[in-house]
Amino acid sequence: MAKGHDMQSGLPRHGSGHRARLQHRILTGQGHGLHDHELVEYLIALAIPRRDTKPLAKQLIEEFGSFSRLLVSDADALVNFPGMGETSVAALKIVQVAGLRLISEPARTQPILSTWQALLDYLRADMAQLAHERVRVLHLDSKNRLIRDELVSQGSIDQAALYTREVIKRALALGSAAIILVHNHPSGDSTPSRQDIAITKDICAAGRTLGITVHDHIIIGKDGHTSFRSKGLI
């Protein structure tokens, strides 16, 4: 492949013709046809402009399994991958941050119960591919608008802590009228465990005594999601 030139430095830039074609497809609305590795290639090229990033992009997709798993992977794991650095990882992570911001906007700006599908889309995009368990509590006001989306705990591959006292104490501190519990199952199966059901019942009971409603407990998995309310568990 012919080499082009960096217009700012005058130095040769690897793969400039190929990158120009990728850029043209992106700018003309044809980016939806790009392969996953081409998306990664272009993103990394923004951080490493004088390097052929195609081989590295393919290696990353192969190592992490898919484009989505690559984006949600731990930053330390990405930084330590041969050929990567903090600037390259940041180029990937800004896409994750921007994508989540875009998806979450309806849930952040409108009453959550009226934008339920948007909330589920956001949670699945953020948590379905995680290799470790993450527990979050969404705090809502009296009009079911989001006050705070808080990460409560982050655990091992199959366990993270959720404590009734701490959840209710935080809800009182924020003045929450309602909460939604959320966690993921790294195994991919969103079926609730006995422990999930027990802790949810405890939090619901504690909330009722203090006027705090638990709207739902949502478990996110690669297979989809499970809503405690829709299953009759709340």
Rank of each mutant, 00 (worst) to 15 (best):
L119C: 10
D52E: 14
V152M: 13
D141R: 02
G85T: 04
S176E: 02
M127S: 07
G175C: 05
R148Q: 12
P192W: 02
T209A: 14
T87A: 14
A20Q: 08
I112V: 15
Q8I: 15
D149M: 05
A57C: 08
S227H: 02
T209C: 08
S227F: 05
G224E: 08
A160S: 14
S9D: 06
I197E: 11
Y163E: 12
K58P: 04
G83S: 04
K93A: 06
S190L: 09
S88Q: 14
L233D: 10
Q110Y: 08
S9R: 10
Q23N: 08
I103V: 14
H215D: 01
I112D: 02
L162P: 00
D121K: 06
G175V: 03
T226Q: 11
G4M: 01
D216S: 07
I48N: 10
F67A: 06
A206V: 04
A160R: 01
V135C: 08
I203M: 05
S16Q: 13
S66T: 11
Y42F: 13
R165T: 12
H183V: 11
I220Q: 01
S88Y: 00
S88L: 10
S156V: 09
I44L: 15
H37S: 13
R19T: 06
G33A: 14
Y163G: 02
P49N: 03
M7G: 02
A45N: 13
A161S: 13
P186S: 03
R25Q: 13
H14L: 15
Q195S: 12
S230N: 12
I94E: 13
R21V: 15
A57I: 01
A2T: 07
F228G: 02
R170T: 13
L210V: 15
G221Q: 06
H32S: 15
Q23D: 07
L174C: 02
Q59M: 15
